[in-house]
Design a binder for these strands. Structure first.
Lengths: 272, 272
DNA sequence: CTAAACAATTGATAAATGTCAATTCTATAC
DNA sequence: GTATAGAATTGACATTTATCAATTGTTTAG
């Protein structure tokens, strides 16, 4: 067995049993002690400000696989930060199918798309055991009035979200199946890296079906692409366990801009 | 000749020569007198607050067709509101092509995707003679500290942008060529309607090439779809002049959710 | 541990879309 | 007004991807 960290495991490793241990019943770990602290908090927020921020954040019991964080059309009250595990967001389509709109890894946000209309345009479902921080939006908005840095941070994060969505549109709009899957894997890889996980070896928590749905392809096509990538020595794929073997070639195939590259530095992921 | 209002003409019509006329050299019309006033300003901003807001907004000379508002990679200083005319935004791709990421009609915003990194990830080019309001972001951010309503408005608008992008991703990800084009036309139609233009008859300021590029299709496919839609009595298309003849059928073809429907009320378009 | 449900893969075929090429239409420059 | 370049349309053909069907592998519930 080689070393195979799921998002779950990594989070656990980072926070070995200390004073307060993450347990399924009472999750009450202050922001200061959270394993995602460095990723999650704006650097500039410290001391008393940090206390303020911490005081508004609610920690919910972890979600089990397939449990919903919120449903389509439900009232928007909070935004969420993934602490460990992962979720997918999806919308219902006219024909009763679901359409996957995104995957959310540790340190990433959910719910920003709901601010405008005051209700969630999509549902969020856990892909594995997952814990999130809940940030009541009214409180957050109030706090931003006191803390200009926080406001700036929030605007930056929303802007990043817009930017990322547009990146993805580039992908979905134009490319072939192999370009899409390649770019998808690189995107996941980069996001893992930004959170301190391995960028060359990781577990995909989502099914082939979810990936296909997300990329606008048939499951069979995705499966065939995985096979082909493997034959071509680009990756090693054993079900959900993925090893990136030839990143450069994958970049070429995906037709990615440089901007989607590792040039992204830590700054862009900070939050609340 | 039937009545054919371009975005240009409509804007002119709404603001017949008054005290201050829009001329190509010195555009200095205060927000209060702007034809987009009702669309553009949060209702709640009045009196002294309006003056403040107005004071930070700069008005540039109109752009001619094919002129750039900003280039890829240029420093982010301001966000922009389209007053009349229209623009497209696009990114360069690896193979030197451009990839169209969006079209921007009167009352709509540009530049929100640049806040995060401090530089524009895409370029913006005028599709016709176009005038915009420039809102220096630092000033705006400062103002939001004084005016909570404005802050709320800004967050809502950014959220809407995220929401809209995800709508589009749904489209690009999954659908057939006819679904894409149909949804595209309905989207344009709805946006015209929200700005007070006709939703059944309008001019497309962008070329078939731009549309195809945007939708991730070949020009030829788009052209054939236009032809087929016409044969099927869905639309009447004479080059850029479009008449929607069977909106219901088009909705069905596009596989759109109800949420993209006319249910969108005026609230969602207000801005700065 | 076993059965049953589900997920993933693979093959054969059909349908959709892209590519190449030719033609017509439109706008622009002189 | 005419010439020219660009945009849009149309047809023939090649390629990609979806669909249908069968098989294998994996997880879950009892």
């Amino acid at each position: 067995m080689r070393q195979q960290n799921t998002m779950q495991q990594k989070t656990q490793l980072n926070k070995p049993r200390q004073k307060k241990v993450l347990d399924l019943h009472s999750v009450k770990v202050a922001c200061k002690e959270c394993s995602l602290h460095q990723l999650c908090l704006p650097r500039s927020i410290v001391g008393a400000d940090l206390e303020k921020l911490d005081s508004i954040i609610e920690r919910k019991r972890p979600l089990k696989r397939n449990e919903h964080l919120f449903q389509v059309g439900s009232a928007f009250n909070s935004i969420y930060v993934v602490r460990s595990g992962s979720l997918k967001t999806y919308s219902p389509t006219v024909d009763g199918q679901e359409q996957v709109t995104g995957f959310h890894l540790p340190g990433e946000l959910l719910g920003l798309d709901a601010i405008g209309k005051g209700k969630h345009p999509c549902a969020a479902k856990a892909l594995e055991t997952t814990s999130v921080c809940e940030v009541p939006f009214e409180h957050l908005e109030g706090l931003t009035q006191e803390l200009p840095t926080l406001q700036h941070q929030l605007l930056r994060l929303m802007s990043k979200e817009i930017f990322d969505d547009q990146e993805l549109m580039l992908l979905l709009g134009k490319k072939t199946a192999e370009a899409r899957l390649s770019a998808f894997l690189l995107s996941i890889s980069l996001r893992f890296k930004q959170r301190g996980f391995s960028s060359t070896e990781f577990y995909l928590s989502m099914s082939r079906n979810d990936i296909a749905n997300y990329l606008g392809l048939a499951v069979e096509t995705v499966s065939r692409m995985f096979t082909r990538f493997q034959e071509d020595g680009l990756i090693k794929a054993e079900r959900k366990h993925i090893v990136i073997k030839n990143r450069e070639m994958m970049k070429k195939i995906s037709g990615m801009n440089e901007c989607c590259d590792e040039t992204d530095d830590a700054e862009s992921q900070l939050f609340v």
